[in-house]
């Protein structure tokens, strides 16, 4: 709400930005300097980062839902406490990230409204359902594992507030990843039923997790400028390969089979995976994943059901302000 001027300047800036400032900005990026909120920046840089950081924040918040689905059914008190704490961490990540996005001039309210209106995206992975307890282990192990792979390079992103938020987020994510792996390990050392539950979860999550890294490099829309601005330091395919190479030995250790019978290790030691079904990815992005409607409906319901609470808090704050103004006048 304080950012009207910044927002309206978005479209026009491109015409009036002088070449000198743009060159100076790029020189700072090239010298690995951090860009801070009050620094001059190209409108497109601001827009790209606002989109990326807010999508990241939405993903944390929507991501609370599939895991939250198991908090009340966690199979032991230790697991219940750990899961509740983990989902709470994700909420915290959402809060830092909205705060980081706000430094670019958009308020949390408008960013959230865009998500609730279905205009802003969040990670496609959260449109898949958590059907068994093994899904909670798999999300920690693979979804958080993939998120870390994506986010570690962002700790060196050119935009200061985002980079700093990522440092804290990555520390917590790596804790979650180990926790998820430990859930899987317990299942894989358990009864036949538990092992089958773990394998089934891996079978369902493997391909959607590979899609988390985004479209293949030859069709990715945003990569070139993001790389030039040092928002993105590795390509989608590079990160996806790093993830697969790190994950295959972990699956072997667990005694689980990755659902890709043609996967093989090449001479460089990289694991070559089969073709990803990008049509499924497009469908999920278009709103046709198994849970897109449920996720948005749950967030909208929380937002609408909570409206009277937020209004009450505002009304009370306003009454207090008036009362203390009155007292001061007396």
């Amino acid at each position: 709400m304080y950012t009207q001027a910044l927002n309206t300047s978005d479209g026009d800036d491109r015409h009036i930005e002088d070449a000198t400032r743009a060159a100076q900005f790029q020189a700072r990026i090239d010298a690995d300097e951090r860009i801070e909120p009050n620094d001059w920046m190209p409108a497109a840089y601001r827009k790209t980062l606002t989109r990326q950081i807010s999508q990241h924040a939405h993903s944390e918040i929507v991501g609370m839902l599939p895991e939250g689905n198991w908090i009340t059914r966690a199979p032991s008190l230790r697991r219940k406490a750990a899961l509740l704490a983990k989902v709470q961490d994700e909420c915290g990540h959402g809060l830092y990230l909205y705060a980081a996005a706000e430094t670019l001039g958009s308020s949390r309210e408008e960013l959230v409204d865009a998500m609730l209106a279905g205009k802003a995206k969040y990670s496609s992975i959260f449109n898949y359902p958590t059907l068994t307890w093994a899904d909670i282990g798999t999300i920690g192990w693979l979804v958080d594992g993939a998120a870390i792979m994506n986010q570690i390079p962002l700790c060196r992103c050119s935009y200061g507030p985002y980079a700093r938020a990522m440092i804290r987020v990555c520390k917590e994510e790596s804790f979650h990843q180990r926790q998820g792996f430990e859930i899987m390990l317990t299942l894989c050392r358990g009864t036949d039923e538990q092992k089958a539950m773990a394998q089934d979860a891996l079978n369902r999550w493997w391909w959607p997790v590979l899609m988390m890294f985004g479209p293949p490099d030859q069709v990715s829309q945003h990569s070139d400028t993001s790389t030039k601005w040092k928002i993105k330091r590795f390509s989608n395919d590079e990160l996806r390969q790093k993830f697969v190479d790190a994950t295959v030995p972990q699956a072997q250790f667990l005694g689980l089979t990755i659902p890709d019978p043609d996967m093989k290790q090449n001479a460089n030691g990289n694991w070559e995976y089969s073709a990803i079904d990008w049509d499924e990815f497009k469908q999920v992005l278009a709103g046709n994943g198994p849970c897109n409607r449920d996720r948005l409906a749950a967030r909208r319901k929380a937002h609408e059901d909570g409206a009277w609470v937020r209004e009450a808090a505002m009304a009370y704050a306003e009454k207090r302000r008036q009362r203390s103004a009155l007292q001061a006048a007396e």
Partner: peptide, 29 residues
Amino acid sequence: LSEWCGHAPMLEEDMALANMGLDLLGQAR
């Protein structure tokens, strides 16, 4: 309290309700 997780009126309250829930779970254990 844990039933609220992800559904609270605002994110700050999601955090607070989970916090109190975690305190109580810890006491129970």
